[in-house]
């Protein structure tokens, strides 16, 4: 059981590291959103599911309720993260930011 928890959390950590590195390395604002918005979502999903499994060690009503709450966090993040990403993209689009292309690299 513990091994499953550790695998889940390490997976989540890998995605989080990818997200943090991607935010720094990507060339422009639009492509930065790709790692920021989505690798983080999957990272939260993996880590929180791992913690919810770990929480079920002492099996009683309270811990089951706590695990349901954690799954509620995952569900909420899944709903809200695309909306937040879309709202940031929309703000950039309306302000008229241009996106980075291969042409700019060659120049």
């Amino acid at each position: 059981m513990d091994i499953l928890v550790i695998i889940f959390i390490l997976f989540g950590l890998l995605f989080f590291i990818g997200g943090a590195v991607g935010i720094i390395r990507m060339p422009d604002f639009y492509s930065r959103l790709h790692p920021a918005g989505k690798l983080d979502t999957l990272g939260i999903m993996a880590v929180v599911i791992g913690l919810a499994i770990y929480n079920l060690h002492h099996f009683d009503t309270l811990s089951v309720l706590l695990s349901i709450k954690m799954i509620l966090i995952v569900f909420f993040v899944f709903l809200s993260s695309p909306t937040a990403t879309h709202s940031i993209v929309d703000a950039g689009m309306r302000a008229g930011l241009r996106h980075w292309t291969q042409k700019q690299r060659k120049e």
Partner: peptide, 21 residues
């Protein structure tokens, strides 16, 4: 740009949720 800062703040927030747990 300002929106880049916003992305950074959002990423910090999503890590804070896990950190709190």
């Amino acid at each position: 740009t300002v929106l880049d800062r916003l992305i950074g703040v959002n990423a910090i927030g999503s890590k804070t949720v896990v950190l709190l747990l």
